[in-house]
């Protein structure tokens, strides 16, 4: 791993080169916006916390065209599926918070063999910005992350002493930097990074402890816990939590035909909706709200953890910030851990 020191002009040079050579995206206000060469100032001062729009939008496209087909009956190739020919464009995501970067790494586990997801991963470089400041809803540290975490990133920038310390983490990250960018970081920079990381971890429990605790819990005891009734009562099943969550990755598949040109698309779906599980017979295995609310939390905290070894939550706090009835996943975690 290569560690560099960059001043603000050095960073602007990098951004300018990325905005020119490929697509550059950064957090602007609530969303992710394409950044042009003359709009670089917009991304060099990013407010604390993760933007409202989740980073998954770059990997789980809205919608993803799985294939196209002709729906004209006379055509010889009517219905023959044709996968999209255009590969995704190369792009750099800048200013990604370590929690969001970690969500990319977590989602890559269920999508390991998914050609569409992997094609987008291949074309994307992720440049992170660590969190010297956090929000009241941030809780990355309690779910195994860190404000200075590097998981899912190609480069991590940390603001220090009027400039940036750049940790170049992958060969893709190396490829982003032109020769002569920045200066090699000195011992002082290294010490500064270590001090920041240590201070962030101080007073927090072992990062593996939470997933281990959830793995050790009996599944049906958690499922039958009394807390679900009270928790689900105020829920509107609006799905805001699942759409904003960077690690909610469920999708629906539908066919669309416009003027006899058809496509099969995949787009975000939510287990908060009754239709999500409705059978054609009318039977619905999660027809009641309590079952849907329970499924969302059980998937994040227990089912995913059993399958992949980590919680499917990165502590970004979006669901806490945006829930219209103030459901707080931190309280759910606390209450579930006390279930005997």
């Amino acid at each position: 791993m290569n560690i560099l020191r960059l001043d603000i002009n050095g960073l602007l040079d990098c951004l300018s080169s990325w905005a020119g050579g490929q697509e550059l995206y950064g957090p602007v206000k609530d969303g992710w916006r394409r950044i042009s060469r003359d709009g670089l100032e917009a991304v060099v001062s990013i407010p604390p916390g993760a933007p409202k729009a989740p980073i998954k939008t770059f990997f789980l496209a809205q919608p993803e065209t799985l294939f196209t087909f002709s729906a004209r009956h006379g055509d010889d190739d009517a219905w023959i599926p044709t996968p999209p020919k255009e590969a995704p464009n190369r792009r750099v995501l800048f200013g990604v918070r370590p929690c969001d970067a970690r969500s990319i790494a977590l989602n890559s586990m269920p999508y390991r063999d998914d050609p569409y997801y992997q094609a987008r991963m291949d074309k994307t470089a992720v440049v992170g910005l660590s969190c010297n400041e956090t929000c009241s809803t941030c809780f990355c540290k309690s779910v195994g992350g860190s404000p200075y975490g590097t998981e899912g990133l190609d480069i991590l920038l940390t603001k220090a002493d009027g400039g940036f310390i750049a940790e170049v983490l992958t060969s893709k990250g190396e490829g982003l930097l032109e020769k002569g960018t920045g200066t090699p970081a000195g011992d002082g920079d290294m010490a500064r990074l270590k001090a920041l990381r240590d201070a962030a971890q101080a007073g927090t429990s072992d990062t593996q402890a939470l997933s281990a605790s959830f793995k050790a819990k009996n599944l049906m005891q958690l499922y039958n816990a009394r807390l679900w009734q009270g928790l689900s009562e105020p829920c509107l099943n609006c799905g805001a939590c699942t759409f904003l969550c960077p690690t909610c990755y469920c999708f629906d598949i539908q066919d669309e035909v416009v003027r006899q040109a058809g496509r099969r698309i995949r787009y975000w779906d939510s287990c908060m909706f009754p239709l999500f599980t409705l059978h054609a017979s009318g039977h619905n295995p999660r027809g009641e709200k309590i079952k849907r609310v329970r499924n969302r939390f059980m998937h994040k905290l227990k089912y995913f953890t059993e399958r992949f070894g980590a919680l499917s939550c990165v502590g970004c706090g979006r669901c806490i910030r945006e829930c219209p009835v103030n459901i707080d996943i931190r309280e759910v975690i606390r209450d579930l851990l006390s279930v005997e």
Partner: peptide, 19 residues
Amino acid sequence: LENRMKCGLGVCGHCNVGP
């Protein structure tokens, strides 16, 4: 068992029964 399904590959989330 039967459940609503979309991908058939264990990803889309529709057919899960617990884990």
